[in-house]
Amino acid sequence: MQMEASWNLGKLLTVFVVVLTVFGVLPLFLGRFQVVLVTEALILGVYALSFDLIFGYAGMLSFGQSIFFGVGAYTILYSFKGGLGLAVSLLLAVFVAGFFGLLVGGAIVRIKGAKFFLVTLVGSILFYLLALDNRWLTGGSDGMVVPTVFPGLAENYYLVLGVSVTAILFALILVRSPLGLVLKMIRDNERRAGLLGYSLKKYKVITFTIGGGIAGLAGGLYAYTSGFVSAGFFHWTRSADAVVWTILGGAGTVVGPFLGAALLTVVSDILSAVVGNIYPVVVGALLVLAVVVFPRGVFGLLEGTIRNWKGDSGG
């Protein structure tokens, strides 16, 4: 399920600039509703990216990203209420969520495998229940209004684009950094990495913190653009979404989660117009298919196809 992005920095930057230009002019060609979709996909892509860092790169199957998504969202709410500006609030969201990531990660880092999954699942449920129960803080399932000066997904397209691009760049740099390489080593062979003297726990906690921060960023953006937060932001289905988008899009690639989030958000919209509620059935089936038949995700498939076209020898 791991894809090594084997493209060198030059190639990558070129592609990047092209894609950026395309996205930059996109709103001029699309209708408002489609811009909304793209914006939403971008935000959710950042969210999925946070999971990919933790799972695709550090090998931890965490079901707890919804925790940080929610924390980020509520930080934005209270930051605005406190009169702070957008930039500061977004930064705050990152740091507060990252801090939670540090706490949670530190507590559970020595747990492995399936039990780790369980603990994050329970943690996610716990946070949701706590949010539900403390209406004074969170507004419960009804939620609270976020005093956004300029709400709306389409209106904030360029803001979201900017933030997403920053996040992607950050992630790309991160995975190519020494930290990223250590993470990949841990993911691929924990024992060996431990024998080589790397403090597994430290690196895992760092990753969890960063992942938490990025999820918080996404949550904050989402709250900001929709002008609304609720306990539902913490619901485990949000965690599930991150998992599904990343797996189907391709784990261990920075771009895969975006692809997954984008594709599946669109698919979800289309499907719900056709048959209500059929989306989860399709997603579930796709996930099973992905796990059993092609674990490298959509991006993996694409990469493979492009490689074949270029005549590269098989990976």
């Binding site: 399936a114 989860p280 059935v281």
Partner: peptide
């Protein structure tokens, strides 16, 4: 296995 059975759950 976790991912696969999770997919079945959603299904």
């Amino acid at each position: 296995t976790v991912l696969g059975t999770f997919g079945i759950t959603i299904l």
